[in-house]
Computed example of a mutant assay.
Amino acid sequence: MLDRYALNRALFERQSLLRPAGHTALQAVERLVGMQAQAPLAPYVGLWTRLRDFRPDDLAGLITGRQVVRIALMRGTIHLVTAADCRTLRPLLQPLLDRALRSGAGRRLTGLDLHAIAAAGRELVDERPRTFGELGAALTERWPGHAPADLAHVIRALVPLVQVPPRGLWGHGGQATHTSAETWLGGRLDPAPALDDLVLRYLAGYGPATPRDIQVWSGLTRLREVVDGLRPRLRVFHDEHGNEVFDLPDAPRPDPGTPAPPRFLPEYDNLLRSHADRTRVLPGGHRDRLATPNDSPRPAFLVDGFVHGTWKLTRARGTATLTIEPFASLPDPGAVTAEAARLLEFAAAGDTHDIKIAEVTAG
């Protein structure tokens, strides 16, 4: 049986959160099977907290060099993945995107040939990168009377679109513009990727886990059948609730008492969004406290392996202030503020730094 501390420490070890890893940024993105990147700069903080001596240029260079790309994948959300993973993951996740299209824009476009719309959209984005607004406006010229956003959604679902720089570059902003993955990377996507490989990759980065965990992370369904097919190659444990949890035989499972230092995570980090039962990192009652009114998560910090509060970075008149908002008293405030100071050195180099700890408020 693996209790939540055993699951927590196994996850922390695989996510390079027990101690910073010496991997390159490219190796880290691959090991994590991508990083959620709805907030364009979140992967930079996610890599900083996991790697030794990481610098923003380490990732920015991979983006401009087309070694990593930003594309809608797991759960239909934007992820930063290696070029190789883009080629295999995007075809595997097509059923998820098809389902989202059928339940949304597809209903409002009944009677139209969606594949004809996709073909027209592909021509447009391969001609030059376009925003969704530009794409929808151009498509309404051929299919008038339909919402531009719905027409653009067809392209997002049926054409593998990558967001091109400067989107996702440290210190840059601007709207997301898109072209096809085939045009950006050159060559075709993998015509026959294997779901088995996806499950094994997930377990290496996020296990031990249940089939439902893998489904929550990916957005795919019916993965119990895939896991059962892999059962002879896996180790099987049980969690505190009696659920079967699967793992790779040789994957690290540290002692549950292994110390876990404070860590600061960016908004949307996959550590907090890749399991059906998030109590291995997110204590009960704290989940709602991470969400903002528009349902986007706040950046979180962890103490002893579990979410202990949120943080925010603000700048004004040359001073960068990192405000720590704990959900409960800090057992070791010095360790948390030391990690906060390290984050400021990374994210706000050149500014004067200030750290504030807010009063604990009731949940």
Results as ranks from 00 to 15, higher is better:
residue 1 M to C: 03
residue 3 D to M: 06
residue 8 N to H: 06
residue 8 N to C: 14
residue 10 A to N: 07
residue 16 S to W: 11
residue 18 L to F: 09
residue 23 H to A: 15
residue 25 A to H: 15
residue 26 L to H: 15
residue 31 R to K: 10
residue 32 L to M: 13
residue 36 Q to I: 01
residue 38 Q to L: 06
residue 41 L to E: 11
residue 44 Y to M: 09
residue 46 G to Q: 03
residue 49 T to Q: 08
residue 55 R to Q: 14
residue 55 R to M: 02
residue 56 P to M: 09
residue 58 D to T: 04
residue 64 T to E: 14
residue 64 T to R: 12
residue 67 Q to V: 06
residue 68 V to G: 08
residue 76 G to T: 08
residue 76 G to S: 08
residue 77 T to A: 09
residue 77 T to W: 10
residue 78 I to F: 06
residue 89 L to M: 11
residue 91 P to F: 09
residue 97 L to W: 02
residue 97 L to R: 10
residue 97 L to P: 03
residue 98 D to M: 10
residue 104 G to L: 03
residue 106 G to D: 04
residue 111 G to M: 05
residue 119 A to P: 05
residue 120 A to S: 14
residue 124 L to Y: 07
residue 131 T to V: 11
residue 133 G to L: 04
residue 136 G to A: 10
residue 137 A to S: 15
residue 140 T to A: 03
residue 145 G to R: 09
residue 145 G to E: 09
residue 157 A to P: 05
residue 157 A to S: 13
residue 164 V to R: 02
residue 165 P to L: 12
residue 168 G to I: 01
residue 170 W to G: 12
residue 170 W to P: 07
residue 172 H to N: 10
residue 174 G to T: 05
residue 175 Q to A: 15
residue 175 Q to K: 09
residue 177 T to P: 03
residue 178 H to T: 01
residue 193 P to A: 10
residue 196 D to W: 10
residue 197 D to I: 13
residue 198 L to N: 01
residue 198 L to H: 08
residue 199 V to R: 01
residue 214 I to N: 08
residue 226 V to L: 04
residue 228 D to L: 13
residue 232 P to N: 07
residue 233 R to N: 06
residue 234 L to T: 02
residue 235 R to V: 15
residue 237 F to W: 15
residue 238 H to F: 04
residue 239 D to M: 07
residue 241 H to V: 00
residue 244 E to I: 00
residue 246 F to Y: 15
residue 251 A to M: 06
residue 257 G to L: 12
residue 258 T to R: 08
residue 258 T to P: 03
residue 260 A to F: 00
residue 266 P to F: 13
residue 267 E to F: 01
residue 267 E to Q: 14
residue 268 Y to S: 01
residue 269 D to G: 11
residue 270 N to A: 14
residue 271 L to W: 08
residue 272 L to R: 14
residue 275 H to L: 06
residue 276 A to V: 05
residue 282 L to K: 04
residue 290 L to C: 06
residue 297 P to N: 10
residue 300 A to N: 13
residue 308 H to E: 14
residue 311 W to T: 05
residue 313 L to S: 05
residue 314 T to K: 11
residue 320 A to V: 09
residue 325 E to I: 07
residue 325 E to A: 11
residue 328 A to R: 15
residue 330 L to W: 14
residue 338 A to K: 10
residue 340 A to E: 01
residue 341 A to E: 11
residue 342 R to N: 13
residue 349 A to L: 12
residue 357 I to M: 04
residue 358 A to Y: 12
residue 361 T to C: 02
